[in-house]
C-alpha cells in the first residue's frame, strides 16, 4: 500500500469515525443542545441556505474580508518592496513594523470600533491591520534575501535600477510574498471573526454569536464550518496563484 493511499485512508477513516461517534453520542450520552450532531448541523446548514437566511451575513463577512485584504495587499507589497530596497526607508519604517508585528493587532479592536463604529468599516480596518503587517514583512525579507550575485552580475552589465527591479528583485520576491499572503489571509479571517463577535450588526460572526445566545448549537457549528471552508478555499486559491506565478522557475534539481 502506497504511503499516499494509506494517508488518505487513515485520515478519512479517522474523520468518519469521529463523525459516527459524535452522531451516536448526541442524544444518548450528551444533550444535543450542547453538542448538536453532524446530521443536525447538516440540516441546519441546508435550511439556512434554502431559506436564504445566510446570504446577507455571508455577503457582509465576505465584503469585510475582501476589502480589508485587498487594501492590505495594495499597501503592503509596495511598502515591503520599498523598505527592502532602500536602506534609509528601512531604518525609518521598520521599527514601527516590528513593534506592530509583536502585537496581536486584534487588541486594537476596541480602538477601531471607537473610530469606525460597529458597522463594516471597523471590520475592514481590523482585517487590514491583521493582514498588512505579515505581508509587508514577508515582502521586505524577500527583497533582502535576493541573490547578491545576480544583482552584481546585472549591475556590471549595466542594468538600470528599473530593469534590476523588474527582472531580478521582483521575481525573487514572489515566493516570499505568497508566504506572507497566506499567513495574512489567516490573520484577516481572524479579524473578521473577532470583529463580528465583538461588535457588529451582521456577518457570519454575528450569526455565530446570536446562535450561541439562543442555544442553537447547530447554527453555531454551521457558522464555524463556513469559516473553516473559507480558510481552506482561500489557501487553495493562493496555492494555485503561486503555482501560476512560479511556473517559469526551473526545478530545484535542474539548477
Amino acid at each position: 500500500m502506497s504511503l499516499a493511499l494509506e494517508r488518505r485512508l487513515v485520515g478519512g477513516g479517522a474523520l468518519l469515525c469521529l463523525l459516527a461517534l459524535w452522531e451516536y453520542a448526541s442524544g444518548r450520552l450528551v444533550d444535543p443542545m450542547f453538542l448538536s450532531s453532524p446530521t443536525r448541523i447538516y440540516a441546519a446548514g441546508v435550511d439556512l441556505v434554502v431559506t436564504g437566511e445566510i446570504w446577507p451575513d455571508l455577503i457582509v463577512s465576505a465584503q469585510s474580508f475582501i476589502w480589508g485584504y485587498l487594501w492590505a495587499v495594495a499597501v503592503s507589497i509596495p511598502l515591503g518592496l520599498v523598505i527592502g530596497w532602500n536602506r534609509r526607508a528601512q531604518y525609518m519604517i521598520q521599527p514601527f513594523i516590528d513593534i506592530m508585528n509583536a502585537v496581536p493587532r486584534i487588541t486594537f479592536l476596541p480602538i477601531l470600533v471607537l473610530w469606525f463604529g460597529i458597522g463594516i468599516w471597523s471590520k475592514i480596518a481590523v482585517v487590514f491591520l491583521g493582514a498588512v503587517i505579515p505581508i509587508t514583512i514577508a515582502t521586505l525579507s524577500g527583497v533582502r534575501t535576493n541573490e547578491a550575485r545576480f544583482i552584481r552580475v546585472a549591475r556590471s552589465f549595466g542594468a538600470s535600477p528599473l530593469k534590476l527591479f523588474t527582472s531580478i528583485i521582483l521575481p525573487g520576491t514572489v515566493p516570499f510574498i505568497f508566504t506572507g499572503l497566506k499567513y495574512g489571509a489567516g490573520r484577516a479571517l481572524l479579524g473578521v471573526v473577532v470583529g463580528e463577535l465583538y461588535a457588529s450588526t451582521a456577518g457570519i460572526g454575528h450569526m455565530i454569536a446570536d446562535a450561541g445566545n439562543m442555544m442553537q448549537t447547530d447554527v453555531v457549528f454551521v457558522g464555524v464550518l463556513m469559516f473553516t471552508i473559507a480558510g481552506l478555499i482561500i489557501n487553495a486559491i493562493l496555492d494555485r496563484l503561486e503555482r501560476h506565478f512560479e511556473r517559469w522557475r526551473p526545478q530545484e534539481a535542474a539548477r
Binding site: 479517522a14 474523520l15 471573526v193 448549537t217 457558522g223 464555524v224 473553516t228 480558510g231 481552506l232 489557501n235
Partner: peptide
C-alpha cells in the same frame, strides 16, 4: 495520518469562532 485532516481543518479555522460554543458549554 489520522490526526492530519483535523489539524488542517483546525488550522484553517479561526479558532475564536468556537467561543460562543465554549460559553454555551
Amino acid at each position: 495520518h489520522a490526526v492530519e485532516p483535523f489539524m488542517t481543518a483546525l488550522n484553517a479555522t479561526p479558532q475564536v469562532a468556537f467561543i460562543p460554543l465554549i460559553i454555551l458549554w
